[in-house]
Design a protein around this nucleic acid. Structure first.
Length: 474
DNA sequence: TAGCTCGTTGGACAA
DNA sequence: TTTGTCCAACGAGCT
């Protein structure tokens, strides 16, 4: 039989899957395989929340494949060895996958391709995870954009993407299936069950992704510009984890949105995702190092107690704490609040952005190396397209502006629920606190830093690295 | 080309 | 209370 392997990673879908489509079109037996090899992704192996999601998504994908008379073979790494072994076991002459763009993943794909080709086997990656691959959008000099708006203009004027590929109705199975590990053997789920909030919030898998997209199109896309900044409302798409795991493709989202008269603001967000991959591709050190070299001299202060207060939502700034608790409970945080919490860690506490990136990496179900890196560097002011450095979010004003009635704070910080709206985001007078049953320092922490003092300290620190010259240290 | 403008998501302060 | 202006920079991208 003319047999092919399809190696799945962050493309856990049957619809609009170029690698799968190629295998079905050109082969009369297809073996889908997923290989768990987190050591190959260090130091950015999937964190706890990502592993939880992956477990659920793999289970859903197994069912989707079973409904098409197929299976998902599960194995553990090393990936290249496993794929070679599987090719030998099944007699497959080819392996296909959809490309990933993280530096370590690019290197791994290249190595697998080399080994397969040396063995006389086909090995081919396909573009399935982005609308336009890194390297295809460049400025007039042929250099990578570093400013989003310019990237967006170029990106938007690219030829429209081809139509999405239909899901194959039936996948040709091999005469004999190779062995598969049980899903539980990948040990992706937490040993102590902390995932109740995740289960309540999400439906991982391709069906859940489509449902989420349709709900967004039906209920939220029209008001997106106004509502996307309101964490107290349900105004965003909440597609990020589905996109990260490839349960839905950016191309499917693009085609679903495009006919819509109010699609542009959301497509811009899709372009941000592509910009993040573009930056990671061209600046592969950025998950660990500031893009702007002068920030390597920034006088960070790694205070473990402050960091702990931030991670657990105990900074005394309700808008910040609500966000951190939403993250801890649901594996997700509203984008507006991500900016404010990140800014608070970096600018108010002067804790290195990498610490925040690492915490988000472990707790977000949508943790994505490109997006996480861009987001943190942007907030820290050390990345591409950085805002003027003297822009420091005021966590009280941000709360009052984007959660005016305090509903978001009350939802995640029940101990403040009885405070009146006017005092929900800032320390209330003694009698107001008493009436609401709040005792600062006991039922809810006092502010760990004073905003004004922290702001001045951050501005002084920033002035220091600018004044001492913008040259990179050797 | 050499200068100009502007940067997803602001804030503080004066008037 | 609202509105306008400036705030310690810098450099990509454009004309």
């Amino acid at each position: 039989m003319n047999h092919a392997l399809v190696w799945f990673r962050l493309d856990l879908r049957v619809a609009d899957n170029p690698a799968l489509a190629q295998a079905v079109a050109a082969h009369d037996a297809v073996t889908p395989v997923f290989i768990w090899a987190p050591e190959e992704e260090t130091p950015w192996a999937p964190g706890g929340a990502s592993r939880w999601w992956l477990h659920q998504s793999l289970r859903a994908f197994q069912a989707d494949l079973a409904a098409r008379n197929s299976r998902l073979i599960l194995r553990r790494g090393p990936t290249a060895d496993v794929l070679m072994t599987l090719a030998a076991e099944t007699g497959a002459r080819a392996v296909y996958w959809n490309r990933r763009y993280e530096p370590a993943m690019i290197a791994r794909d290249r190595e697998i391709q080399r080994r397969f080709r040396e063995a006389g086997l086909a090995a081919e990656g396909f573009p399935g995870n982005l609308l336009y691959e890194p390297g295809t959008v460049a400025n007039r000099e042929g250099k990578p954009f570093r400013v989003f708006t310019a990237f967006w203009r170029a990106w938007r004027s690219m030829p429209a993407p081809a139509l999405s590929l239909d899901a194959p109705t039936r996948l040709p199975s091999p005469e004999r299936w190779p062995d598969s590990l049980p899903l539980a053997d990948l040990a992706l789920e937490p040993k102590i069950d902390w995932a109740a909030g995740l289960r309540e919030t999400w439906q991982p898998g391709e069906a859940g992704a489509l449902q989420q997209l349709n709900a967004f199109l039906r209920d939220h896309v029209d008001a997106y510009t106004a509502e996307r900044d309101r964490p107290d409302h349900e105004g965003t798409s909440r597609l990020s984890p589905h996109l990260h795991f490839g349960e839905i493709s950016a191309r499917q989202v693009w085609h679903a949105l495009s006919p819509h008269p109010n699609a542009e603001p959301y497509l811009r967000q899709i372009a941000w995702r592509e910009f993040a991959y573009h930056l990671l591709f061209h600046f592969p050190q950025t998950p660990n190092e500031a893009l702007r070299p002068e920030f390597r001299r920034f006088p960070w202060q790694l205070d473990p107690r402050m960091l702990h207060a931030w991670t657990r939502g105990r900074t005394g700034y309700p808008f910040v704490d609500a966000g951190m608790r939403e993250l801890w409970r649901t594996g997700w945080m509203h984008n507006r609040v991500r900016m404010v919490t990140a800014s608070f860690l970096v600018k108010h506490l002067l804790i290195p952005w990498q610490e925040g990136a690492r915490w988000f990496w472990d707790t977000l179900v949508d943790a994505d190396l490109a997006n996480n890196t861009l987001g943190w560097q942007w907030c820290a002011g050390c990345g591409a397209d950085a805002a003027p450095y003297f822009r420091i979010f005021n966590p009280v004003l941000q709360g009052e502006k984007f959660d005016p009635a305090g509903a978001y704070v009350r939802r995640w910080i029940p101990e403040l629920a009885r405070l009146p709206d006017a005092w929900i985001h800032k320390p209330a007078p003694r009698e107001v606190l008493a009436a609401a049953g709040v005792e600062l320092g006991r039922t809810y922490p006092a502010q760990v830093v004073d905003h004004q003092a922290a702001r001045e300290r951050a501005l002084a620190a920033l002035a220091g690295i600018v004044k001492s010259g913008g040259h990179p240290i050797a």
